[in-house]
Design a protein around this nucleic acid. Structure first.
Length: 273
DNA sequence: ATATGAGCCTGTATGC
DNA sequence: TGCATACAGGCTCATA
């Protein structure tokens, strides 16, 4: 479900509302998500005051004043919503945080691909994020960086864009959308991209992600922000999910192919090999 | 090292 | 209506 823009939308929503609130209680209704939840969870968060919400890649981080952070990944179908105290627990609500203003933060995830950890804030970078690639919206991304990463890589550029050792936050939707905007064919091998194309790709990625954040993310089916409201970027999608429909730019029929088991969408005219 | 496919889960849509 | 199948926005592991 959630790629960078969706997690960023949620982060922004929660950061505005959670800072300075404390966690009174955490209730687990299930131990098994993608991984078995630690039995230290409750102890690590209880009484902690929320300092802020951050994002790295598709991870949401909630920092507490007790030295711990909550690391959340929404997987494919995860939701984190803020509810009133009259909220009634629903199916697939796995974790319920009771806050000291009587609001409730609920983690719901039908497919259970999501995950949630707590660990000391100071050790996250080393333990969790050391192998992650560059943030696409940060100043760390550059032609030199990406050119170096694509060197000698034979994999299709679409799959490389979704490899979080290279660049983070880009999932199946935004990979197709970015390549369309950069006018690059999804099957070309990484090493075959010229510098001008890599520059175009960086700009396209940044533009697509920024527009998607502005629209509150893409809601195909599951995604909602912390207030249960969907995003609107699906209305601006150029190729994703538009197979057999005319390209909005040149009217050529959009094609759908499989790459590494995932659907890819592209315009065969705008995105020449 | 590199690339692919399976697997983790449930819900929904489709076709018979 | 019931059943089987395919597919879904992510990530990690095993295998070649």
């Amino acid at each position: 479900m959630p790629e960078l823009p969706e997690v960023e939308t949620l982060r922004c929503y929660l950061n505005l509302r959670l800072v300075n609130l404390a966690i009174n209680e955490l209730v687990k209704t299930r131990d098994r998500l993608r991984y078995t939840l630690s039995n230290q969870l409750e102890a690590n968060v209880k009484g902690g005051k929320i300092i802020g919400c951050r994002r790295r890649a598709k991870y949401l981080l909630i920092d507490l004043d007790n030295g711990y952070s909550i690391i959340i990944h929404l997987g494919m179908s995860g939701r984190l919503t803020l509810q009133d105290n009259n909220y009634i627990i629903k199916k697939h609500d796995h974790l319920i945080f009771y806050l000291n203003n009587s609001q409730i933060l609920v983690f719901n995830d039908p497919r259970r691909f999501g995950m949630l950890y707590t660990m000391p804030t100071s050790s996250i970078e080393k333990q969790f994020f050391s192998r992650l690639g560059v943030e696409p919206l940060s100043a760390n991304i550059s032609l030199e960086y990406l050119k170096n990463k694509l060197l000698n890589r034979n994999r299709p550029i679409k799959n490389l864009l979704m490899d979080n050792h290279i660049i983070v936050g880009i999932g199946n939707i935004y990979a197709s959308e970015s390549l369309f905007q950069a006018q690059i064919h999804p099957v070309v091998p990484g090493h075959s991209l010229a510098s001008a194309e890599i520059n175009r790709l960086i700009l396209a990625i940044q533009n697509v992600l920024a527009q998607a954040i502005k629209a509150g993310g893409t809601t195909l089916k599951d995604f909602v922000s912390g207030d249960n409201k969907p995003g609107y970027f699906q209305q601006q999608l150029q190729v994703y999910g538009r197979q057999n429909q005319p390209c909005r730019s040149c009217n050529t029929i959009i094609e759908k192919i499989q790459q590494a088991g995932r659907a890819t969408f592209y315009c065969p005219t705008c995105q020449k090999r």
